[in-house]
Design a protein around this nucleic acid. Sequence first.
DNA 1: CCATAATTGAGACTCAGTATCAATAAGGAC
DNA 2: GTCCTTATTGATACTGAGTCTCAATTATGG
Lengths: 151, 151
Amino acid sequence: MDAAERFSRYLATNRLRLTRERRGILEELLRIKGHFDADSLLVHFRSRGLPASRATLYRTLARLVDAGLVHKIEMEKGQAQYEVMVGRHHHDHMICVRCGRIVEFESREIERLQMEICRRKGFSMTGHMHQIRGHCSDCRDKTDDAKARRV
Amino acid sequence: MDAAERFSRYLATNRLRLTRERRGILEELLRIKGHFDADSLLVHFRSRGLPASRATLYRTLARLVDAGLVHKIEMEKGQAQYEVMVGRHHHDHMICVRCGRIVEFESREIERLQMEICRRKGFSMTGHMHQIRGHCSDCRDKTDDAKARRV
DNA sequence: CCATAATTGAGACTCAGTATCAATAAGGAC
DNA sequence: GTCCTTATTGATACTGAGTCTCAATTATGG
């Protein structure tokens, strides 16, 4: 079952409608790789004359997240980032506080420990957010250089 | 070394000044247990006639976070939550999406795995945010009841 | 094709936090 | 203590990211 099909079914089961805008947005998103935010997506759409207002983009992204086709990455500040989850499985993110680079990671072991913690505390998990903040390999080197020069 | 002393030293080393407002805010925070947000803190201060404007509260909280005396919990939406970290060590949070309850957890093992992941990816961690979202024990029961009734 | 209800888009609005800037007040030098 | 420099404060304006409103439009089921 492909992404379009999955979205159709999601919409149908929720008594929502498959509109031209929704179809267009999903179609275009499937072409995008990596992370993006809602407003740059709007610019992208406008620049190609694709139909979609700001409101509709935000609304459709929320639907796609709900349908499990897109993942929203809440940032500490600034705009949320999104990524298409078609053909990928769950992962978390390391975010470079210097250059903004987002590096993915996954750990079965951490996921398992999380479940275990929830079980112990009587919590039923619906989701989680695990972000590691720091300097990516490139920026770490630059920072080291800066330090070295300063000494 | 107590909290006031730690804050003084932090301010001194950063060429910042220990003002009446800053002293008062820290003093009052030390009385508070649990989690709180900036605006309810403002209401609290106003109701007792303590001196502090909204701007100063936000600014001072940022300083206290920087000094390591307070921890800021970025929420998915709505206001950030804060908690005083004096005499406590690091932990992460489970947040009930139904009632907003915040439950703390800690896992040496997860911390260790995080470090390991960073090492492997050449990332140098400056911090992390790990939030588990779901239903707390109370709300889970309520939800189950609701489901049961619906059937 | 019709009726109904969901959707859209333009722009107003909200919310949480930040910036501005003149008045005030620390903190160090003397 | 007095003076000087510079940080701080508070009232308020502003910002950014996202949400809401509502009349016009359009998908869907009958």
